[in-house]
């Protein structure tokens, strides 16, 4: 693997009227690297991806793909493949016909086209469905074909916009495998996602955007260690819903409900020892925890922390 970045973004700035959406973002993506771009809505992710795809001219800064500006140079755009968030395929056409179509539209012809179709079918593990119309496929298969259509011209850089929207756990794991397979062939992958679990498990590096700025970047493990140090996440799964007194007790223990589930969690440097003491106190109070788990903090925790910082700012 060479260290020369396939994608370089220098001090990217952009504004729509008076509203600044990108405020000097730097980004570099090396060959064979998976990079996850994270951030809340309005952080500037879509604008940055639009600029990388050559669809908008930056107000300031530069972008280069293989050293060329994608806004002005077709050969730079030819080096990238975009997997849109939507299923950007033709429903009445089969998997193979879709791949052929997008291959032709990317300029692949003849024997090269046949080889590219076969390669895409293998890499996306859709060989068994090649003659099935896309509209008859499951959501997971459609997502994989969506990726296949973007790699027909062997792009050096693949951009995936929310690739796991609307897919179940099994399909997501299959997608992760496809993305890793692509990375192993030397393709650089930029994933824009809200799926922090996927980003944590898949990405070599992640970057957090907030209000047009990159506020954090690094490998998921390093970022989590940097943010949480020795802290562990303690997760309590209650058998029954606590009454109001029980909720006060949970809050007093520093536990917060995870979404609308019956799971409560907190970060604590005490780890397993704290979990043991917590178990005894909850049982004594009659709250009957079904399960208490202790694990390393995840990107989910980091994202919540970043959101807290954002609110505080």
């Amino acid at each position: 693997m060479t260290d020369r970045p396939i994608l370089n973004v220098w001090r990217a700035e952009h504004q729509y009227g008076p509203r600044k959406v990108l405020r000097g973002i730097d980004l570099a993506l090396r060959p064979g690297e998976i990079y996850a771009l994270l951030g809340p809505n309005g952080a500037g992710k879509s604008t940055l991806v639009g600029a990388i795809c050559g669809r908008l001219k930056l107000s300031g800064g530069e972008i280069a793909i293989n050293g060329e500006d994608p806004f002005t140079t077709a050969s730079a755009r030819a080096s990238l493949g975009l997997v849109p968030q939507e299923i950007a395929l033709y429903g009445h056409l089969t998997v193979r016909e879709n791949l052929e179509t997008f291959g032709r539209l990317a300029g692949v012809k003849g024997k090269g086209l046949r080889e590219a179709v076969q390669r895409a079918l293998l890499l996306t593990r859709t060989v068994d469905r090649e003659h099935v119309p896309v509209k008859q496929l499951s959501g997971g298969y459609k997502r994989r074909v969506n990726i296949g259509a973007a790699i027909m011209h062997r792009p050096a850089l693949l951009i995936l916009d929310e690739p796991t929207v609307g897919v179940d756990q099994d399909a997501r794991e299959a997608l992760d495998t496809v993305i890793r397979n692509l990375r192993d062939t030397g393709v650089s992958v930029l994933i824009v996602t809200h799926d922090l679990e996927q980003a944590g498990g898949l990405a070599d590096r992640v970057g957090f955007l907030r209000e047009g700025r990159k506020i954090m970047e690094g490998s998921p493990r390093a970022l989590i260690e940097q943010a949480f140090g020795e802290e562990m996440e303690i997760m309590v799964h209650l058998t029954l819903e606590p009454d109001s007194a029980g909720e006060i007790l949970m809050a007093g223990e520093g536990l917060e409900r995870v979404g609308r589930t019956s799971v409560w969690s907190k970060l604590d440097p005490g780890g397993y020892a704290t979990a043991g003491r917590l178990d005894k106190r909850l049982r004594k109070a009659g709250l009957d925890p079904r399960e208490i788990r202790v694990r390393q903090p995840s990107l989910q925790n980091l994202f919540a922390l970043v959101a807290d910082w954002s609110r505080a700012a």
Partner: peptide, 19 residues
């Protein structure tokens, strides 16, 4: 344009001309 096909094509070298 709504399904993202145009996004995919526009991100490539050919643009919308052949379409």
């Amino acid at each position: 344009r709504r399904s993202g096909v145009a996004d995919r094509i526009l991100a490539g070298a050919a643009g919308m001309g052949p379409v």
